[in-house]
């Protein structure tokens, strides 16, 4: 059962469209597998929409904003309407064609939220395989991370945040077992050593390289940049 969900603040920012594409997709992927969050998102969207299009809500910030009022008056709405209805095009929904990705002879379906994203080549270290998702979000790096059975990531902390959404399989760390659909958001205060007994595929978003903390593992800090 899915036990880890996005915080409500994250869901709010998601609905408002304020999160970067990487985190937005992470929440969409989770919600696709989580009826509970689907419901929360639907309700909150409805509420935000209602507030956005309510006259009174608007009146509240129309006050003191004469400039904006003037510029609204300056726009030729009639012209815009005519230009729009002049077109007889309608948008066809092309049925989404499933995209697959293979790691070590296993094929996985790519979540719909990632359908239009560009994927990089596989890179390997030990039992880990990483494919970068090319979102161009500067210090935020997004990847698909595959861990072969018995593989794991040595104990580390996160300098920024690290989001993991489990797409398939399972892994565990000091806090417990994670399953498909789990949405795990960690920050610098967390230290963990995730291990996947049977292998797994994760969607990961990290804002800074991992930092390995324990003895000899400190030598692994270059791997931190690999996973980041």
């Amino acid at each position: 059962m899915i036990n880890n969900h996005p915080k409500f603040e994250l869901i709010q920012a998601f609905v408002n469209g304020d999160l970067p594409a990487s985190l937005s997709a992470g929440i969409a992927i989770h919600a696709d597998m989580c009826v509970e969050c689907q419901k929360t998102i639907a309700q909150f969207t409805e509420q935000v929409a209602e507030n956005s299009f309510e006259e009174e809500f608007l009146d509240r910030f129309i006050v003191d904003d004469n400039d904006a009022l003037e510029s609204i008056a300056a726009i030729d709405f009639d012209h815009m309407i005519n230009a729009i209805v002049d077109s007889s095009d309608i948008d066809v929904v092309v049925p989404t064609i499933e995209k697959n990705i293979s790691f070590n002879d296993e094929t996985y379906i790519i979540p719909t939220a990632l359908n239009s994203m560009e994927l990089g080549k596989h890179a390997h270290i030990g039992k880990l395989t990483r494919t970068r998702i090319q979102l161009n979000e500067n210090e935020i790096h997004t990847s698909l991370l595959h861990i072969q059975p018995g593989g794991g990531v040595p104990e580390h902390t996160h300098k920024g945040f690290e989001l993991t959404v489990l797409l398939a399989g399972s892994f565990h760390d000091e806090s417990g077992e994670y399953v498909k659909g789990d949405f795990i958001m960690l920050d610098g205060s967390h230290q963990h050593n995730p291990v996947s007994t049977n292998g797994c595929l994760c969607y990961t978003v990290a804002s800074a390289p991992l930092h390995f903390t324990k003895g000899i593992n400190k030598l692994l800090n270059p791997i931190g940049s690999f996973i980041y």
């Binding site: 469209g17 594409a21 937005s24 997709a25 969409a28 919600a31 696709d32 009826v35 689907q38 998102i41 639907a42 969207t45 929904v93 719909t112 939220a113 990632l114 359908n115 239009s116 994203m117 560009e118 090319q134 979102l135 161009n136 979000e137």
Partner: peptide
Amino acid sequence: NKEDNLSDDIWPVAESMSCE
């Protein structure tokens, strides 16, 4: 970032947040 129109994949307009 990019001109890649990701939004409709993240927030489907056709079947808004339905269970697929």
